[in-house]
């Protein structure tokens, strides 16, 4: 039985910035470090964390059945095929949208706390009931945002709500960073984002086409592709979450350095 479980909410406000992808990859990375990890899909109206993890066809029960005592928790938990330390729990059935209440969320997280080192909650987009439910049981949060104005504005709103609900610490992940555009100042820079949001940066994730491929295959990047830039970023985030001191990558250097040019050359299809 794990004692000091960390319950982390992964949220963004805006949709499509990469909450679910981060949850899946962070889950795999933590599990690979030998930590028992549960990912709880609180976005059950439009659930797709199971798709990303390639576990869609293994779901039988959800947290709803567990709370209604129709099944046991271990029946509802779906173990990952390759990473046995990782389990998925969908919070509910997409057809029963309004059953979940903040208290239900607390009860289910309390049950998960008894078995796992980490509980990652994948939060739905928006700041309405779905977000409030997902937030109810969280102790700390990771806010995901993209270097664009609308995503940063929504993240700011969400951070305000997290603060008024006494969720601490809140850390930031800047997703889909394009080093070249940042170097040419065509995109918000890291400083622009951290200036407004005033949060510690947990990590950057570089834009990577392989993310799309891995999503469609249902195999998170961190599972096997070691050479993907995004996968490295996810691994680093997981390590930093564990307290390891790993320096952030510098996107400008990444785009102009010799190593980057060489890597791009190697990845070009002609070779």
């Amino acid at each position: 039985m794990a004692t000091d479980t960390r319950v982390i909410l992964i949220c963004s406000g805006k949709g499509g910035v990469g909450k679910t992808t981060l949850t899946a990859n962070l889950g795999i990375s933590l599990a690979r470090q030998g930590l028992t990890t549960a990912v709880l899909d609180a976005d059950f109206g439009l659930r797709n964390l199971d798709l990303l993890l390639g576990l869609e066809n293994r779901i039988v029960y959800t947290a709803q059945e567990v709370l209604e005592e129709e099944c046991r928790l271990d029946q509802a938990l779906v173990k990952h095929k390759q990473e046995s330390n990782l389990s998925l729990l969908p919070a509910g059935n997409p057809r029963m949208l309004d059953w979940l209440k903040p208290d239900d969320m607390k009860r289910i997280v309390d049950m998960l706390k008894e078995q796992f080192n980490y509980v990652l909650i994948d939060c739905p987009a928006g700041v309405e009931d779905g977000f409030k439910n997902a937030m109810a049981a969280a102790q700390e949060a990771i806010v995901v945002t993209n270097p664009e104005v609308s995503a940063v504005r929504d993240a700011d709103r969400v951070i305000g709500l997290l603060n008024t609900n006494a969720i601490k610490p809140v850390q930031l992940v800047l997703n889909r960073v394009r080093p070249k555009m940042m170097a040419n100042q065509e995109m918000l820079s890291i400083d622009d984002v951290t200036d407004i949001l005033a949060l510690p940066l947990l990590g950057l994730v570089l834009e990577d086409e392989q993310v799309i491929v891995s999503t469609n295959r249902g195999e998170p990047l961190t599972l096997n592709s070691v050479n993907s830039p995004a996968a490295k970023c996810y691994l680093n985030i997981a390590k930093r979450l564990q307290g390891e001191d790993i320096p952030l990558i510098d996107p400008v250097e990444e785009s102009s350095g010799f190593g980057a040019k060489f890597r791009r050359l190697m990845q070009t299809k002609i070779f």
Binding site: V127, R153, D154, D156, R157, I159, G160, L161, N163, I196, A198
Partner: peptide, 24 residues
Amino acid sequence: GTIRSGEYLDSPGDLLILGDVNPG
């Protein structure tokens, strides 16, 4: 402290803020 997007602060006198007032 920072006043973030969507937040609102009203005062019946002068208002002194030690922190940023973010867009929104």
